[in-house]
Design a protein around this nucleic acid. Structure first.
Lengths: 342, 342
DNA sequence: TAGGCCCTGGACAACGTTGTCAACGCAATG
DNA sequence: CATTGCGTTGACAACGTTGTCCAGGGCCTA
């Protein structure tokens, strides 16, 4: 077996190249390139001959080579926490729509809330030379991105602020939303209100807790330690926290759930109680209307769309100072948040 | 401005290359390559010098060039219908996990159930020379993929069979699952059972309808035309269909919903009725347990995982005949499917 | 000390595409 | 008829990496 043969077998399974097309059509390499890219300056007759050769051979341009030559990949990277989380599906979809409108493909990966994995993913995307990055930070130190950003990879952080790095950010108003939700419970007569949230190293978790404290303070309520629980959103942990707050001699009469995963477990625990417990959750959930769950809704699609639009504005050359956008949240009363204290 | 300068400005923002690293470390180009790829044959001292130069310059290997040279992109493409659909989130995530285990990145896109868009996406992915493709077909003719498959792009179809092309497929047992669900309703005394499903050009929709007919025939029930409705899963359409079946002089006493989106609307319509209506839905939904919805559950993560594993087996050289895997479904009784006829 | 071997390192070509530039043919013009 | 100009075409280098191959030096052995 000679060298050439072995080579082509191990590669793209003998895909035809422009050279092959050129040979078959009896034209030069560059002319094929012109046809493939719809560049002007090719007579209709030549174009037809080239097109026939392309179809006959099943030629498809190799974008890897194109990228190497042009320096643009027409792809952006999206690093989020977990694609299976219902909050990120619509976000990702919105980003994809914007990317599509700009002719770019979307490469995405889940960090699983692990800073190391986030970095690994981001750097892999940079090695691919994606044109831009949208990152939902898992870690809180993004200095590793500095050389990349300097090298021109546009970056937008979403949902949580970036750590130690200056870049565009698109956030939801966690503080304000949570403050409003808790105030809503207070307005309906509650004073003993529990807060169950995500791990404290996650920015949104602490912001939402801050909103809770603000609302309580506004109402002159002193928060007891046992009313607050931050930690993993794994059902077992949330269940334990909720049951602790709802049991004992002086149980809370209402719960504020720090995100959709907490809400889901909280709903289950509350359903098992023999007295009504009020509930407001951060993030809307499918079917929450049927279950009558009052929520603070953030528009995941709007967040994704806004982030992607910022990104492409950067890619189109905008070089203003890094912007920080905060999107408002909406309180949607559906019953569970309007229950009076039992 | 001389030519070289202009050039480097329009490219990757002056990213250092191996050549730069080599110059700085005072070694040859190939030696840098060896260090970057942890290849043997470099003395510790040389390696250290190279590593220092890499860190100092913030060098990151350009994978585009690597891909061009090696012929493998270490990435796979996933084309699905809508990332925002809760069924596809976990599926996509499962695919990603397997890809990650094989050191590959995932590029994905949504076809929005549009065959043209599916083709456009698939071909774009092929132009990127992804190593493999996982496709949830929107169209029913995939002959356009033949040259790609011949050229060695491994392809696995998921959820629905491919049209006019021979390839691996991973499906859920739509027929059996739906037959079981309808039989379940019949076992609880129903005879007038409505079926609302997705558009008839979607394979799973007709398979599920076939399961419905099979169960009805098994029970000796003659299906009336007005009990069956296939079409868009857009809420308005589903609502109209459900209301039509539930109204009139001889309404159905139970509904079988052909997928998760139909189920969601059906639940809402049923909640508005003044008599109980039994319901079994295809696909599980979050919080369905709390709402007491009986479902036929298909394991989206298992489907994704199985498909991805098949794909990588192909990429690792397996060349057996195309396989067709059908994963079983599970009936989960939760109340709505066990209601007797009103 | 000569011969051979292993280990390290570098020169060079190739991957498939696109940008640059020059050459060619042909028509219009002086 | 010579010249100019334009529209079409192709030769060639370059993008940044990796595979191949060879050179040089150190070390061991006979």
């Amino acid at each position: 077996m000679d060298r050439t043969t072995r080579h082509s077998e191990t590669r793209y399974g003998n895909r035809p190249t422009m050279k092959d097309v050129a040979a078959r059509a009896g034209v030069g390499l560059k002319t094929v390139s012109r046809v493939v890219n719809s560049e002007p300056g090719v007579t209709p007759d030549t174009e037809r001959r080239v097109q026939e050769a392309i179809d006959a051979l099943g030629f498809r341009r190799n974008d890897s080579a194109r990228v190497l030559r042009k320096g643009r990949t027409a792809s952006i990277g999206l690093v989020l926490e977990d694609l299976a989380d219902p909050f990120y599906g619509p976000l990702s979809r919105a980003v994809e729509e914007v990317a599509r409108a700009h002719g770019a493909l979307l490469i995405n990966g889940s960090s699983a809330e692990d800073p190391e994995r986030e970095q690994e993913l981001v750097l892999a995307l940079c090695a691919r030379r994606v044109d831009g990055l949208i990152v939902i930070p898992a870690g809180d130190d993004h200095r590793y991105l500095e050389p990349e950003i300097k090298a021109g990879i546009a970056t937008v952080f979403v949902d949580r602020p970036a750590g130690r790095v200056d870049a565009d950010m698109v956030l939801s108003d966690s503080f304000g939303g949570s403050r409003e939700g808790v105030a809503h419970l207070i307005a309906h007569g509650h004073r003993r209100i529990g807060f169950i949230g995500d791990q404290p190293r996650i920015h949104t978790a602490t912001e939402r807790l801050r909103g809770y404290h603000a609302a309580m303070t506004d109402a002159g309520i002193t928060v007891e330690d046992s009313w607050v629980s931050l930690g993993s959103t794994e059902p077992g942990r949330v269940r334990a926290a909720a049951e602790a707050m709802l049991g004992g001699p002086e149980p809370v009469t209402a719960l504020f759930a720090g995100n959709n995963r907490v809400t889901v477990t909280a709903v289950r625990v509350i359903a098992e109680q023999d007295r009504p417990v009020a509930l407001v959750g951060f993030d809307d959930i499918e079917l929450a209307d049927l279950l009558g769950i009052t929520v603070i809704s953030q528009d995941a699609a709007a967040v994704g769309r806004t982030a992607a639009e910022h990104l492409f504005r950067r890619l189109d050359g905008a070089d203003h100072a890094p912007a920080r956008v905060e999107l408002p949240t909406t309180l949607i009363p559906r019953g569970s948040g309007e229950l009076p204290p039992a």
